[in-house]
């Protein structure tokens, strides 16, 4: 059997002169990105999504030693990488549009019947994700702004999942989301990973990374300052890494 494709960072420098990062994200794992705000973890995540070009190095997708470079968001999306943006108010939702339109925007071409879009087809697609993510929403034609923050975030997650990605990149997915919804999302993330999806989660909360991720990369000054996994992944170790102290 062919080896499953992985997402690889090859000698990626986030800023000129910083130590290069070599990293491989494999199917079925949940990788956390931690660090104080603005220490490069977001640039790293966006580079993997094709949204930013790193100072040097390449993002590749494929089997080890043989892959396609990811240089743009369109290329990332077409090769199975989905990205969930951080600030849902300014770069996520379309406030004037309906829930259904917000859900479908990344996959608008998929509901075609005889060359025209079928709303019924789109509704059907939305309903499967609404159930999977237990989105609490009125009619799908209601404006997205009628939903709570947590449910808006679920619609955005449904938008990303509708791409049926193999790699899901999440930029602080539970920011401003209530506790109950958080746990629903955690279960969803674990389920996706169990089904073979690779997830990269940037989180500003260490607790979240500890309960969710298999391993964590701690960023400091645009370099990976520490890597932890399994037993070594503790709050103290991660915090020490974030502040550049040896644990």
């Amino acid at each position: 059997m062919a080896e499953a494709a992985s997402l690889q960072a090859r000698d990626v420098s986030l800023k000129p002169g910083r130590a290069a990062i070599a990293e491989t994200i494999r199917a079925g794992e949940i990788v956390g990105l931690a660090g104080l705000d603005g220490h490069g973890q977001e640039t790293f995540l966006k580079a993997m999504a094709g949204l930013e070009t790193p100072a040097s190095g390449k993002i590749m997708l494929g089997v080890e030693g043989n892959g396609r470079p990811i240089t743009s968001l369109a290329k990332a999306a077409s090769t199975g990488i989905a990205y969930l943006p951080r600030d849902r108010r300014s770069t996520g939702i379309f406030p004037t549009q309906s829930i259904l339109d917000n859900f479908a925007i990344s996959t608008v071409g998929r509901d075609m019947r005889f060359g025209l879009i079928s709303k019924a087809e789109r509704r059907k697609r939305y309903e499967t994700y609404r159930e999977k993510l237990s989105i609490v929403a009125p009619h799908p034609n209601a404006p997205i702004t009628a939903l709570s923050g947590g449910n808006q975030q679920k619609v955005l997650l449904a938008r990303a999942l509708a791409l049926e990605p193999k790699f899901l990149l999440l930029n602080d997915p539970t920011r401003g989301v209530d506790v109950a919804t958080r746990h629903v999302l955690y279960d969803v993330f674990r389920g996706l990973a169990a089904d073979g999806m690779a997830l990269v989660i940037l989180s500003s909360e260490i607790e979240e990374i500890l309960v969710l991720c298999h391993r964590v990369l701690v960023f400091r000054e645009h370099e990976v300052a520490a890597r932890f996994s399994g037993e070594g992944m503790t709050t103290d170790a991660v915090i020490a890494g974030m502040f550049g102290r040896a644990a």
Partner: peptide, 26 residues
């Protein structure tokens, strides 16, 4: 007819919030 093509959804998304549309791959 235009309203029933993917283009219409993309047009309205771009008009609603172009940065969000960009991140959503439009």
């Amino acid at each position: 007819l235009v309203r029933r093509t993917p283009y219409y959804d993309q047009l309205m998304a771009v008009g609603s919030d172009d940065r969000a549309a960009y991140t959503a791959g439009v």
